[in-house]
Amino acid sequence: MTDTIIDTSHDIDDPNFSEDSIGHTHLPTNTGVSNEKLGMWVFLGSECLMFGGLISTYMLYKNRPGGLEIAPGRTVGGGATKPSDLFDIPFTSVTSFVLLASSLTMVLAVNAAGRNHMDRMRIWLGATASLGALFIGGQVYEFTTFVREGLGYTTNTASSAFFTLTGFHGVHVTIGILMLVVTIAMSLRGRIPHSRAEAVEIVGLYWHFVDVVWILIFTVVYLIK
């Protein structure tokens, strides 16, 4: 059943009524927000819980690089090196700036899509994907450096918590890059007209969330001693 509240403040014959000037089609939902967009926000709210768990786990174990006694006299891990012993703050700062810049290019792409500047939108989306790939490259370099220095996934509980947290974030960035590439491809094939510009905004929400999570990780994991 559709909502029965009558609003006579707008003329349905207005050609701009069902689609505003940045391409948002107003669907007859109870919330006034499209189901896709609301679904993305609910998903992001649940992602807060998942990343909250991973960040808490790292905070708990970062100063406890002990092993786990899985049976009497049998311990897993126990290496003394902590992830924080190997952090390269200048390098990680550069990758953080890169991810921050990708958020700017993403929001510029969303604005361009809303104004029906599809060529410009594709350029900004391409820039966002490139910056994301640069960030992932930095993370791969960091991980390989750590492993070379003797800090592997099972070295101790602190390293397990660190690799799980930052690895999960990296996977999210990678998925975001794939979403961006698919969006560009769909746009090139004409499957994202101005009336569906909200699709770009929804991809943008995911991308900004990934950036927001990195803002938390960078401070909590890397900077707070």
Binding site: T2, D3, T4, I5, I6, D7, T8, S9, H10, D11, I12, D13, D14, N16, F17, S18, E19, D20, S21, I22, H24, H26, L27, P28, T29, N30, T31, G32, N111, G114
Partner: peptide
Amino acid sequence: AAVTASESHGAGDHADHH
């Protein structure tokens, strides 16, 4: 001519606010 309340965003609402 009647529309639902959820459709009552005017043209350019988001453009004005963004």
